[in-house]
């Protein structure tokens, strides 16, 4: 097994962790939003918009940290649009998410062509990274990956150990009961959708400011939907979403290595893995994944 001989376990784990970054961030964003009762298939569009906005801000200000901040704010703004449409104007949440995803392609594509593609500006460079010199090949771990790791226990704590988290889950399970108990369902849902935009926005910044230091059209390439899959596979919990992200990113990294090593194996089967697993869990074949009871249902004050 020549292939296994070349496998650098530590390097593989680090590569997986890095590739899982946008998945776990957007996945946790999905958890926040859906736990409050708002389906968020707009994660893809939010990440793409934030990737672009963060990059544009970093180019304009020559400050990568400002770029990250702008990416987060852009994520919150576009998520606020999702909230406005689906909570205020009672638009079907899937339709609203679709609107955001299409809009993101249109906006980033148009601005990319004008301001980036034909400009002489170089890349921004990438955010600082932790150099793991004690590992073979001394890999780097970027700050957004570290932030994502730090956010997992925080989001978990907020969701399961705070009043805000309790209210969030109440609105996602039974909004009418929550309202009766004096909880402002609209406020809770707005806050959660906008927070989910902040998390996915940070995930978007990963693509431009940590990974390559540049913007390319449609660079998120469906990662928002894999994050959605990770959220479901992780049963709408932050820790579960993290585990699923690691599994999906690991399969992806492994398939990449298979291709490079020239082993004759249909690597597309590994590419299908996240999607097949997600279908299996929503169908309940292996331990049913059950969404919050009021997930996807608009709530109308009477």
């Amino acid at each position: 097994m020549d292939f296994l001989g070349h496998l650098d376990i530590a390097g593989f784990v680090v590569a997986t962790l890095i590739a899982a970054t946008p998945l776990v961030l957007a996945g946790m964003g999905g958890v926040m939003s859906e736990r409050s009762g708002v389906v968020n298939i707009a994660l893809e569009g939010i990440m793409l918009t934030s990737a672009f906005a963060g990059y544009a801000a970093a180019v304009a200000t020559h400050n990568l940290w400002l770029g990250v901040l702008v990416a987060i704010i852009a994520g919150m703004l576009i998520a606020a649009l999702h909230a406005l449409l689906s909570i205020q104007f009672l638009v079907d949440q899937i339709v609203s998410g679709t609107v955001i995803n299409i809009l993101a392609v249109g906006i980033t594509g148009s601005f990319y062509r004008t301001y980036i593609q034909n400009s002489s500006l170089g890349g921004t460079g990438v955010l600082p990274a932790l150099h793991l010199t004690f590992l073979p090949n001394a890999p780097f771990i970027g700050v957004i990956t570290l932030a994502a790791l730090a956010l997992i226990p925080i989001v978990h704590f907020v969701l399961f150990n705070t009043v805000f988290g309790l209210r969030t889950r109440a609105c996602g399970e039974h909004p009418l009961a929550a309202e009766t108990a004096g909880i402002n369902v609209y406020l809770v849902r707005y806050s959660n959708v906008i927070l989910s935009g902040a998390l996915a926005g940070l995930g978007g910044a990963y693509f431009t400011l940590q990974q390559i230091g540049n913007f390319l059209p449609n660079m998120t390439g469906g990662r928002g939907f894999i994050a959605l899959a990770a959220m479901i596979f992780g049963r709408w919990t932050p820790v579960g979403a993290f585990g699923a992200s690691l599994l999906f990113a690991g399969a992806d990294a492994f398939s990449g290595r298979l291709q490079i090593s020239g082993v004759n194996f249909p690597y597309q089967i590994l590419g299908m893995l996240p999607y097949v697993l997600t279908i299996i869990v929503v169908a309940g074949a292996v331990g049913r994944a059950v969404a919050p009871a009021a997930d996807g249902k608009p709530y109308k004050k009477s």
Partner: peptide, 30 residues
């Protein structure tokens, strides 16, 4: 895109706004 250098992705903006308005008659009235 060829003629004016405006990205062909622009039509995605048109599409997104179209769906948004069709799906939100409440918003149109507002």
């Amino acid at each position: 895109q060829f003629q004016t250098q405006v990205s062909s992705d622009l039509i995605s903006i048109v599409q997104a706004i179209v769906i948004m308005f069709v799906a939100a008659p409440v918003m149109v009235r507002w």
